[in-house]
């Protein structure tokens, strides 16, 4: 190969080398960030703030939130679930003990499964998050005793499967688009051993989800809904 040919080859490969170097640098940054933060006892504010957007959110391994994880995903990422899937990583929240404001003002339309079975509070978890449309699954346990403001103005929420046990008063009436599977799972997750508690749902959502024929919006008086509500007669169920 002549010198000219070698120089030609170098010039042609230069962009590839540059991109490879950039990717390696990016990978190293994220590996270091994630390895270091995993050694912390908590994940408060981990990815909080407007600075976090789709273009710069590039985890290289599973994200493990733990302990106090308040505000951890209060940011401008528009689809957390898709980004994680595309990058082949998962979000592990199974050791979160406080999930206050976790998705406060979140821009994420889709949220992956959240195992919050060790959390004692989900106060304002989706507060003012009208862009959140679906949550794959929200796993709660009798450890969680604070649901205040959890769904305040979560007006875009259409799907959120509840699992585990709910043992405190919950208000999700802002979610007027909540689908049947979500409402059913919510009722099924209400504790059978508590008393004096209230769950508030959107009457519009129940009317649509359980309607007896398309367009009737009569779900709140349907036999199916009444039977479901009756399974948790230890709860006051309010349709707002």
């Amino acid at each position: 190969m002549s010198i000219a040919e070698k120089l030609q080859t170098i010039a042609e490969n230069s962009p590839k080398v540059y991109e490879a170097g950039k990717a390696k640098q990016e990978y190293d940054f994220w590996k270091e960030l994630q390895d270091r933060t995993e050694n912390y006892s908590g994940s408060t504010y981990l990815f909080a703030g407007e600075v976090w957007i789709d273009d710069n959110f590039k985890p290289v391994q599973d994200i493990v939130l733990k302990g106090n994880s308040n505000y951890a995903f209060s940011n401008n990422i528009t689809n957390l679930k898709r980004i994680l899937e595309n990058r082949g990583v998962k979000l592990n929240t199974s050791n979160v003990t406080s999930a206050m404001y976790l998705f406060y003002y979140s821009d994420s339309t889709e949220v992956p499964e959240l195992d919050l079975s060790k959390a004692t509070t989900i106060y304002a978890i989706f507060y003012q998050s009208p862009k959140v449309q679906s949550v794959d699954k929200l796993i709660l346990s009798n450890k969680c005793t604070n649901y205040s403001s959890a769904f305040t103005n979560a007006t875009g929420l259409t799907h959120c499967i509840f699992e585990g046990e709910i043992v405190a008063t919950l208000d999700i009436h802002w979610s007027t688009l909540l689908d049947k599977a979500s409402i059913t799972s919510l009722i099924n997750t209400l504790s059978t051993t508590t008393s004096g508690l209230t769950v508030t749902l959107s009457k519009t959502a129940v009317n649509a989800a359980f309607e007896t024929a398309s367009g009737l919006a009569d779900g709140s008086t349907s036999a199916e809904w009444l039977a479901l509500a009756q399974t948790k007669s230890n709860w006051t169920i309010t349709l707002s």
Binding site: T198, S233, T238
Partner: peptide
């Protein structure tokens, strides 16, 4: 709208008791 001073709703399924 119905209320007990804390919760509000158009339809309220009272708990047992």
């Amino acid at each position: 709208v119905l209320t007990d001073g804390e919760h509000y709703g158009k339809v309220i399924f009272l708990a047992d008791g």
